[in-house]
Design a protein around this nucleic acid. Structure first.
Lengths: 209, 209, 209, 209
DNA sequence: TATGAATGAGGTTTCATTCAT
DNA sequence: CATGAATGAAACCTCATTCAT
């Protein structure tokens, strides 16, 4: 009544949008993306379902909003900051970090898995990001080969791919889907050792000084 | 009571059922399981949609019928007949066979991926089968360790898991989803070499004669 | 093979028809007429559902067959053989007979109630039969009035109607639907006394000898 | 959370709900409950069929809404306010009121008859209400017996039942189903006289002054 | 006649999306 | 922006009936 021309979004609006994002994540994790209904999300946020459309245009839109809340680092296994002087340590650190992030977001990872299997656009996006990541990782392996540290007979790109998916899919199996009972530390130790063995990186290839 | 005589289904019945299974596979591969509609399947089979229900009760039911048409061998990566005297050869053969089967059924594999991500029951079934398979594979690795052929520091179960998913997920990435351009032979060579390296199986561990 | 030209219905046919009628009654009583499905009836008879149509054209047809198996007497309350010399005894006997028949066929009576409420044709048929019955009963009352035995102020037709439905609907309430716990004898005694009171028939109007 | 403001339904909402209730009654009366289709009701109300579900969950739900619009008095025959000082007048008034209400709602009564015969839950509800009503009526008769006004040989509960159904079922026969041509006044006079006779209530048991 | 697969009309229900208030 | 009723496209599933064998 009193002040009418509010230009910037009212506090309510911002708050409601945030509530919807939180609600969306909860509902997606609980019911899966496919089974989740707009109404459920709005209900969970304590809003009328019509209000959903004040902030998002589609369910996919809402998912995107959820994802921007999740750190990038979690999305890819492998050495983030490849340190050529101590590749074993780099790999170990990267794997551990990835698995920890995966564990924190395990329920959401299942959602992503589902969306990628159902939505071509989302799959493409995911593949594109993976390619960029793999390229870096292949470069890392190439350099190790050139330095005489890694098995020179391996195709760097295919090896990068195989080792990456080994880690990410193991995380899925153990941390998201309980294919096997195992604790994170054991899993990290195993995949790291397999990485190193697979590339034939001598564990003693640590900085002498 | 009723005299038998028409105990066996008419030729039509069998033929139509087969037609529905074929149609279901085609539609699932084209549209995905979730988006596939009963009507489309019946249409594709040249039958009225009501006829679908003469043979299956649900879409899941139809999928099950499709799957029983696909050989088991395709479902699991890894050495099927582990030959302790020449593990390297066994692994190589198993990987190649798996990848070839995967390639033949790549479109269907995507369907399975989707169903597992959408249907709890199907996921459970899949996990159960995977566990049985992993157990065998872990045993294989254990034996190699006892024989002094494989890296004794590895947890056999986690290693079996990680190496299995390495192969299956690489197949998915290259053969189903085109994350990377690569031919099957190269992929097979890479994953086999990674398996052997990872377990530290000496490639010379082949029978001398 | 051997004898082919069997002119009269085979023994099988007759037996199967009988089985269907029995099955129909059972299913109608169990599920009601509306909910009963052709398939259920055939199943119950141990026949394929297509065979139903070898004997009946519709569900209504099957019901008709069931009904012809049930005696007519059960269909109407009231004195069947009005004996003017001892109307009280006639009424008592008629009521008792009706209630006993109703009790024997209570489940079927519920089916008839349902069908009458759902199927216009069946209702018409029922009304037609009731009219004929009521006419006779009104005549009975008229004669009692002329003989100075029954209340002359009553409209014979309306009284016949009201007293008839009093008995039949009480039977429905107590014997079919358990509105009230009561045994048949008590119910019979009550409705008979009400009949006699209502018409002001002196109970002493019994034959002196 | 959300500011109220539109807590109360829009005018449309209330109006459309009312339109649906009216439409439902019309369709039920025209086609019967079983044959009535959701779509027809929505059409009759001038709404899309989906809108039906904004207000009701099932056809039964809609019927319930229709029924709450109909006064209770119509549901039970018998003296509502039994006046022991002039029972005859009370009975006469009650019967007349009931028959008039029945006539006004005759078409709907047929619907109720059908629903009771088809829907177990509805039947149970109806029986429960009837029991409560009968209890009161039996009490009424008991008191008359104690006061020496009514035939002491009658079981009050069974008599209450029989006389109630006599009235209600006569109403059904004459006013809903046209078993007999008769005007309401004559019917009322007949059932009232039968009530009084049946209980042996002296018609002179009216207040002298 | 008996069989049971095939047919397809028919109705139900869900839910994303719009839009007047 | 928030609300929640209105809309109607979509699929699903049932089952009476037909009919070739």
């Amino acid at each position: 009544m009193a002040r009418s021309g509010s230009r910037r979004p009212r506090a309510d609006a911002t708050r409601n949008r945030a509530a919807l994002v939180t609600a969306a994540r909860r509902v997606f994790e609980r019911d899966g993306f496919v089974a989740a209904r707009i109404t459920d999300i709005a209900d969970e946020a304590g809003l009328a379902h019509g209000s959903f459309y004040s902030h998002f245009r589609t369910k996919e839109d809402a998912l995107a909003a959820v994802l921007t809340e999740v750190a990038e680092e979690m999305l890819h296994p492998g050495p983030e900051f490849p340190d050529a002087r101590d590749p074993a340590a780099a790999i170990e650190a990267a794997n551990l970090a990835y698995l920890q992030a995966y564990q924190r977001n395990a329920a959401l990872m299942l959602v992503l898995e589902q969306v990628a299997s159902v939505d071509k656009d989302f799959l493409s996006l995911r593949l594109e990001r993976s390619r960029a990541f793999l390229e870096r990782n292949a470069g890392f392996i190439s350099r190790l080969q050139l330095d005489g540290i890694a098995d020179p007979d391996l195709d760097p790109e295919l090896a990068a791919l195989a080792l990456s998916v080994m880690v990410s899919r193991s995380a899925y199996a153990v941390l998201a889907v309980d294919l096997l009972e195992a604790d994170l530390a054991a899993l990290a130790a195993t995949v790291t050792r397999l990485w190193l063995n697979a590339l034939k990186i001598p564990v003693s290839a640590r900085p002498l000084i």
